[in-house]
Amino acid sequence: MNVLGLYNYWVVMVLMMLGFYIVISQGNLIKKIIGLSIFQASVFILYISMAKVAGGTAPILDESISTYSNPLPHVLILTAIVVGVATTALGLALVVRIRESYGTIEEDEIQAQDEEA
C-alpha cells in the first residue's frame, strides 16, 4: 500500500474537495450545481474503487473464473447516479424558476432583491 497504489483514492479526495469548494465559494447558482455534481461523482468513484479486486474479472458465472470484482457497489452506484441525476434536474429546474422570477442567477443579486422587498 504505497502512495501510488492509492491512486484512485487520491482522485476521490481531490474531486471531493474541488466540488465542495465550488459549492461553497461560487455565487452563481448553476456553478454551485456543477460543484455539487462533481462532489457526488467523487463518491461514486469511491464506491467503484472499493469494489475492485486485484486480478479480478467481471463477475460472470463460469468455471474458468475464480476471482472477480465485487459487483454490489456497482449496482448501488447505479442507484446513487439516478438519485444524483434527479437532484441535478430538480436543482436546475429551480434555477430556471428563480431566473424567471428574479431575472438573475447570482446569489448576491438575489439577496439584494430580497432585502429591498
Partner: peptide
Amino acid sequence: RALTAAYRYLIMGTIGATFILIGIG
C-alpha cells in the same frame, strides 16, 4: 423566496445526503 429557500435546502440537503453516502460506503 420559496424558490431560493428550496434551492438552498437542496444544496445543503444534498451535501448532507452525500456525507451519509460516504459514511455508508
